[in-house]
Write a protein that binds this DNA or RNA. Sequence first.
DNA 1: TAGATTGTTAATCGATTAACAATC
DNA 2: TAGATTGTTAATCGATTAACAATC
Lengths: 212, 212
Amino acid sequence: MKKDKISSAVIRRLPRYYRYLNDLHHNGTVRVSSEALARSMGLTASQIRQDLSCFGGFGQQGYGYNVDRLRREVADILGMNNRHTIIILGAGNLGRALIENFSFRSSGFRLTAAFDVDPVLVGTRLGGVPVYHIDMLRDYLKEHAVNVAVLTVPASVAKETAASLMSCGIEGIWNFTNVELPRDEHEDVKIENVHFADSLLTLSYMLSEEKV
Amino acid sequence: MKKDKISSAVIRRLPRYYRYLNDLHHNGTVRVSSEALARSMGLTASQIRQDLSCFGGFGQQGYGYNVDRLRREVADILGMNNRHTIIILGAGNLGRALIENFSFRSSGFRLTAAFDVDPVLVGTRLGGVPVYHIDMLRDYLKEHAVNVAVLTVPASVAKETAASLMSCGIEGIWNFTNVELPRDEHEDVKIENVHFADSLLTLSYMLSEEKV
DNA sequence: TAGATTGTTAATCGATTAACAATC
DNA sequence: TAGATTGTTAATCGATTAACAATC
């Protein structure tokens, strides 16, 4: 599916392109030039054209880009049409916040189940999905094709839960614990970390910059 | 406080250095070489020495770095000793997850209050902090020195809430809404975005890479 | 056709890696 | 002292920006 290796700098910008294009689309904007898009995103037109040309020529000389077409192309590049299935491990506040308020669908994922150890939660439904006991995880994964797991368990059980997921053949982990997950022999598992503390510390750094 | 302008690539790595150094410290490790740290973090020793030398010489030839000393230096560079004060706007699931499970203290922040519009929550306490009605925000900010606000409100009110914070002189916003916040005339406000969707889409991209 | 804007090649800039003298 | 490892300078690599011919 991929020609050359795309640099991670480009990849990290793709979701942001998608977000802006989606907004433009919902505003009813039909065409956009690299110049105009660059201005609104705070990038250079050159960079946008360079980035997009990694994947093909989506524009037209003298016209620019068709917003809807480009939006769909970017969605496709991001794999948003791959009907990924996702489950969530840990239905505490954070897990619940994601289940109830995050639109997995908008990113092309179908959330099918949540897992927790709390007897009060197990057997209930949250935001439309059933909550199972975490002991049922292996059986569930055997019977359902699941690509990705969201890890919102306590840090103390993060590593073992991740190991269990990997041994069941999970393809990706969206990790919200502040634990660095070892891949061990499962080198092919994709891990995307959301490190809240790293993010806040970056802000902390920015606050003390240029003071004095 | 800063000599030359530090590149954002370096800054983004600092919290990760802190995390690893903190772990080493808690393991009782006293010294570490750039070589050993690089191996465990998946970087090159050169890069670590280069990064750290932006801020000064914290190591010693023939020995390496004293873990505790370096950890404290990095903490200081990150501004973790600046006793920042933080409030949180929006005490829904995500806000509550942060209030109850995220250790602001470990990042050098003191969480002092939460704000929401839900009459059931207003007047109560969550995780040790009082919940006020969001109408009290301006008054609260007048009477208390607050550096940073966490934005966990619904997307529909994100922009106006941010504008209100900025007009009250907030220094930083930790933004969890999927809305791009305009700075308008408050150019000096630091904004750190946590875009869940961008993160998940990056994972989605990685999943479809190298397939075929 | 004339004007606008792409895709791409070349030039520049910045970040990472390599090398090594300094020195603990 | 000999060995280890830093901090820094130089070399390389990669990413961003500039320029422009192609063309809608």
